[in-house]
Design a protein around this nucleic acid. Sequence first.
DNA 1: GCTGTATGCAGAT
DNA 2: TCTGCCTACAGCG
Length: 308
Amino acid sequence: MPEGHTLHRLALDLDAAFAGRPTHSSSPQGRFADGAARIDGRVLAGAEAYGKQLFVAFDGLAEQVRIHLGLIGGLTISSGTDRPVVGAVRWRLESDEAWADLRGATVCTLIGPAEKEAYVAGLGPDPLRGDADPDRAWARITRSRLTIAALLMEQGVLAGVGNVYRAELLFRHGLDPFMEGRFLRRGEWDALWADLVALMHVGVERNRIDTVRPEHEPEAMGREPRQDDHGGEVYVYRRAHLPCWVCGTPVRTQVLAGRNLFWCPRCQPRSRRRVPVTRAAARRPGARGATGRTVSSRPEASGRPASR
DNA sequence: GCTGTATGCAGAT
DNA sequence: TCTGCCTACAGCG
């Protein structure tokens, strides 16, 4: 579920459902019992996302709830009076009209203002925030020897971009994921940032990730819409070995920095400025370039084929 | 019922 | 660079 657009959408939805209203908090699962007790009965002041972090403030309390959904966490908001506890609910937030359940988050805790400031300071610019300064990200990228694919997912470089947006963004701009950040041109970065801002705003509106251009939408191509848990229409994410919507070439996949990377080898041709195959990476059988710093010329020799 | 996988990240090694 | 965490769900038997 959670890339930056999910958290910003949740902040909006929490505000709409709870802001300005007295709330009741509990922790059926127990792991947020202390925090829930501190905020129980307070009026919710507002929710705010920064990258993949979600902060919830309450009237008369300097501390805020900090939530990070991790890979599998979810926060659902519902209305109505029938409110069964289903599964492991870390935090339940209720008003007279609405209720929200948090499950599976890696972080749900109360933090003070200084602590919040420290977390936010460690994040790169968030394309979904009006106060974002893309030059901060550019400064990191343009002097980095890491792959552009790895850099886009680095939260200290860019806040809120995850595995789907990074793969789709690189595809839309025809960029080799393995190109070193320092070889990205300023004009290319400006285009990437502008595209991210637009794509992620669409993500917030639709509450899903859609990245295909009008001419590649299912209706335009006469194909079935994507039917899986993501819902969104994408070019390469999780489409390994399937034909590229643009050129028909099978989409490729490879593990990079512990995550599955997807790209079209034809639409995103190899850059002469891609991360070189170092002697060490070539010699060591296990070397797979997991940091994004080095890359094996024969990923299938790594002992763990990407899939198939 | 079990296994594998997932839009993430921290901490150990 | 690897493992662990937390939950849900698809795919398998």
